[in-house]
């Protein structure tokens, strides 16, 4: 075989690769040239028949040719495989086979998200028992002696001085009696009130309260900013807050806090009863009488406190119409919280 013949063969082979219409033809071409008994190995075996002077060039050309065919087949192969084919190897519409993770309970989700938001403002999480005493739950929180919240009809008294806490504020009392200011905490936890269960009431519910007491001045303006930050982080960047004066025994001044409605962005809708605002929290500057109860000097400390219902936030944020859904544990409801 001469170098010219080799050139011709080389050109033909590349043409054949280029013309192969499908993977099957291409494979035939590959076998014809590169297979064990293919043209290229055969030519290699015929090397000794080539003129001695041509041999080095011939050998080099054959090797180069092999590489070219291989490259061409590989390139063509990708091209051919992209061509439509009726043969399905992978029914990608079949259901996948891996287990799904579980879903966090909406109440836990709100608590964990809230803890993360307040952590960014330097608040730690504090905890206390569900079973509290009169001092922590009422007295130290400056509840007036005849306030109806202490009645048997409102509070679960558990014998003696024990009761199921009606708010998580007793944790604030525990923290203040055991720590010097500054105290900057949120207190998520379970609370109990003797309410008859309906769509918006539950005798067993959760609260998050916050407390910031310092020896530096802390003002209503700081409170407003803290809750405004929380509103934005929790309900979306456009959420705003509004204060309305109110009364709580443990704060003075006391305010009720509205968040602007995240559904209509303040325009008025069914969720916010057309007001553009949703009542979320109670808050205020800590009443000096509370400081006296926990052993702080009322003249030397400043502080604010706030509190809101976890279920209420969950219901508003996720559009849950009935508080009972949160305790029914129907997995078709719970699974949606993934």
């Amino acid at each position: 075989m001469t170098l010219a013949e080799l050139d011709k063969l080389q050109a033909d082979s590349l043409m054949e690769v280029a013309n192969a219409a499908d993977a099957e033809t291409l494979e035939k071409v590959r076998i014809r040239y590169l297979g064990r008994n293919g043209v290229v190995p055969a030519i290699m075996k015929q090397m000794k028949e080539v003129a001695a002077a041509d041999r080095p060039v011939f050998g080099k050309n054959v090797n180069q040719w092999r590489k070219e065919i291989e490259t061409a087949i590989a390139a063509k192969g990708t091209e051919v495989s992209k061509a439509p084919s009726n043969k399905v190897l992978f029914d990608c519409s079949l259901p996948g086979r891996w287990h799904t993770p579980g879903a966090r309970h909406p109440v836990s989700r709100v608590i964990e998200e809230s803890a993360a938001i307040f952590a960014r403002l330097g608040f730690s999480v504090a905890d206390g028992p569900d079973i509290e005493n009169r001092f922590n739950n009422f007295t130290a929180l400056n509840t007036p002696a005849h306030h109806p919240s202490m009645d048997e009809s409102d509070t679960f008294w558990m014998g003696g001085d024990q009761l199921l806490r009606t708010q998580t504020s007793p944790v604030q009392i525990r923290m203040m009696t055991s720590h010097k200011p500054p105290v900057r905490i949120i207190t998520p936890g379970r609370t109990y009130r003797r309410d008859t269960t309906d769509a918006t009431h539950s005798a067993n519910f959760h609260q998050i309260e916050g407390l910031y007491v310092d020896t530096e001045p802390v003002s209503l303006a700081d409170l407003k900013a803290t809750l405004a930050y929380y509103a934005r982080e929790m309900m979306g960047s456009e959420a705003g807050v509004r204060f309305r004066p109110h009364f709580f025994p443990f704060t003075e001044p006391s305010v009720e806090v509205d968040f602007s409605c995240h559904v209509c962005r303040g325009q008025g809708c069914r969720v916010c009863k057309m007001s553009g605002w949703i009542e979320i929290a109670g808050a205020g500057m800590v009443d000096p009488r509370v400081y006296e109860f926990v052993g702080y000097d009322p003249a030397k400390v400043f502080g604010f406190a706030f509190g809101f219902g976890v279920e209420r936030i969950a219901m508003i944020k996720y559009g849950i119409p009935d508080i009972r859904w949160l305790y029914e544990n129907d997995v078709r409801f719970l699974a949606q919280m993934r």
Binding site: L121, Y212, D222
Partner: peptide
């Protein structure tokens, strides 16, 4: 209360209380 400004929180960002639980 609407005239009370919303000041940026100007507190230390770290609370030293243990909340690992």
């Amino acid at each position: 209360l609407d005239k009370v400004p919303s000041a940026l929180p100007r507190t230390a960002a770290v609370s030293t209380l243990d909340d690992s639980f």
